[in-house]
Design a protein around this nucleic acid. Structure first.
Lengths: 159, 159
DNA sequence: TTTCCTGCAAAATGTTTGCAAGGCA
DNA sequence: TGCCTTGCAAACATTTTGCAGGAAA
């Protein structure tokens, strides 16, 4: 799919995304460019609100941000993760990278964990008759900075 | 059934939960008993609304259900999973069982996947300086019944 | 009779939808 | 000039909070 082009042509994620939009007769507006710019350089998954902030779109409605995120997702250029409390974070999809994150449950800072153990689970799921299988693997914890003074939490322990 | 019994004492999850409440000076009310009864026999994680329905608490406010779920969680007797769309499902915690689920993204039916590959990830996270580490691993797909006529979905594929 | 629990109302959050006006191509 | 996008308002679903009255122990 479109994201594959990246590996073959060496084009940046932004270029690939822009091409996908144009191919579909969709337009490159200022808010869309700004959102893409943020996602292109983000080193971690971000909340919609944070994307707007980094994009310098304080004047822009959050609705517009969501609509652009949704548009990117439809082109398979964006993926989301859901935190323990239901909040969504978004990040650019790059074909040459698949990994999961350790996310600080206090400050939401994320670091990549460059291993993926999902295939076993997916195989098992397929054996149970499930199709269109995907997996979510996220690890939560407290980063060093946030470690000070906090109880173990209701989700802790059950690993 | 035997699987419900606490490994050491032979007490059922319900008994353990009731003891935990009484130990804390908390009371066994009718809504609380009903919620616990549902969780004790549920074979899969359930939404708050579904718990109320199964508990026969149509007259009871959902707020009460949430408060009881929260109370159970504080005793480490309940755990939740978050679906791709942010909705929470709840299930009883049993000390002798740790596994993840394959959840149908249409009908929310879940089946256990009796393997857990989270420890590697947690070790890695700990090495990065994170504490209080826990993990969320969920696999989503379409069960056989729901497989008919449905597009691949915005989250699909990116395994 | 204490104080925990419930119901009701309302708020908080995060996200989506409808519609008319605005602006890329 | 088309019609894709935006802004605004409002709807939405889920979950949380405040407060007064009701009920376990």
């Amino acid at each position: 799919m479109c994201a594959e082009a990246d590996r073959q042509t060496g084009r940046s994620w932004t270029d690939v995304a822009e091409a996908a939009f144009r191919r579909n007769g969709q337009r490159m507006t200022q808010p869309r460019k700004a959102v893409m710019g943020v996602l292109a350089v983000a080193s971690q998954p971000l909340k919609a609100e944070e994307i707007r902030r980094r994009a310098g779109l304080a004047e822009t409605d959050l609705v517009t941000v969501y609509r652009n995120l949704e548009a990117l997702r439809e082109h398979n250029l964006l993926q989301g993760i859901v935190l323990e409390d239901g909040v969504q974070l978004f990040e650019a999809v790059r074909p040459d990278r698949h990994f999961h994150h350790i996310v600080c449950r206090r400050c939401h800072r994320a670091e990549p964990l460059e291993i993926c153990t999902g295939h076993e689970l997916e195989e098992r799921a397929a054996a149970l008759g499930f199709t269109n299988v995907s997996h979510v693997i996220e690890v939560f914890g407290l980063c060093r900075k946030c470690h000070a003074g906090r109880d173990s939490g209701q989700w802790g322990g059950a690993s």
